[in-house]
Amino acid sequence: MKLYKMEAIVLRARDIGGGDKLLVLYSREYGKIKVIAHGASKPSSRKRGFVQPFNHTKFLIQRGREIDSVSQCEGVEMFSFIREDLKKIGYASYLAELLDALTPEGEPNEFLFALLLETMRLMNNGDDEILARSFEIKCVGFLGYRPVLDSCAECQGQTGGRIHFSSGLGGVLCEACASADREAVSCDRGVVETMKVLLSWPPVKLRLLKVGRPARNQIKVLLRDYLKYYMEHELKSAAFLNRFTQGPPG
């Protein structure tokens, strides 16, 4: 019997019949990994409480022929405040779905694990929307799709005058290059500066950041469009968030 340990955040938990759950975990040691938790839907299960989505749990995993299974688990942080607020459930679902969509299985990335953990901790009394935007931009940055914000993504020159943002060309465009992508959208310089802050500041420092509603809306639309370009699909929880939070659909 081969057993191994890991510390992970539960991204998804889907009932697969017979009281079993298929878990998608993001672990510190192995990155994204799918495991089965046998009997985890049954009231008598000792694992039941620890394998709920968004829990930070220590796992002892047993290797299986086709899929590994949870042998034992112990909760580290349960983030119970998330379960008490519909918007927080929406934001946490969005973070989990985004990380699931962006990462392949079996590629560890400790930065992403720490980023998700810290973002979820700060959701207790932080600005959920700003934390989600910071998570989005940092996540794509860590995975190699960091948007170019300091210079023109097309000519690498200075971005004087009016600036545009192009998801296809991977960042901001100067006035002269704006025609390089017909779908590039005009954006405020302040919005780009805020995006730089979201990318570079640690999440804990973001409580000092004050962003008005128009800028929040524009950043949301730009980043959602940017993510959609790279993922080639929209996240289901994004539609949920659009319904239960302020701002435009994006």
Partner: peptide, 15 residues
């Protein structure tokens, strides 16, 4: 749940 051990309960269930 009826028949459960307190020792194995998670913190949300206990609270």
């Amino acid at each position: 749940p009826v028949g459960a051990d307190l020792e194995y309960a998670d913190e949300i269930t206990l609270s």
